[in-house]
Amino acid sequence: MANTASTEAAGAAGAHDEGAGRRDFLFLAGGAFGAFAAGASAWPLLDSLNPAKDTLAASTTEVDLSPIEQGQAITVKWRGSPVFIRRRTAKEVAEAKAVKPDDLPDPQSDEQRFGSGAREQWLVVVGVCTHLGCIPLGQKDTDNKGEFGGWFCPCHGSHYDISGRIRKGPAPRNLPVPPYTITAENKLIIGKEQPKDGPGGTTA
């Protein structure tokens, strides 16, 4: 910056004889340097607003699945948002698999979402309505589960089915499935990706 400024000053003083070209060049070079410096100074300030390292480090949540009975649902917090975990009954899984994806607003099969085998009984979705961010009802037996027996968002009336897929209402997408891993010890790690045909815990 000092160099630019001093050469600019020299350019202004010595511009009597030398052509305007030299002055233009100095002006543009100085301006470009200044713009670069401004951008380089602004970047750390903006980047500091991104998630900090400790925030990123706290981005997985571990849950012990063994106490959860069939038909039971729990809610855990992952990255500050609720994650719905439901151990679905065989009937519920069958119901979810029976729906043709092509008929849905956001076509996705239950297998694409939760896999198959031992894994398919575990429903793991981010419990944030894809419309405008409310928490849908349906985790408790007494909740209004909507017209498709899954979840119902009370804010603007979006209905989700037992696979967490949007069926009716203003929400555009299915409840998102976070990356998760189910270990052979029946432990769920939300925030860590696993192939869809992974162990999936016990089936008992």
């Binding site: 750390p44 300030l45 980047d47 500091s48 991104n50 900090a52 390292k53 400790d54 925030t55």
Partner: peptide, 9 residues
């Protein structure tokens, strides 16, 4: 330690 460029700012 944790905030991006926090040390610099």
């Amino acid at each position: 330690r944790d905030v991006n460029y926090g040390w610099l700012i």
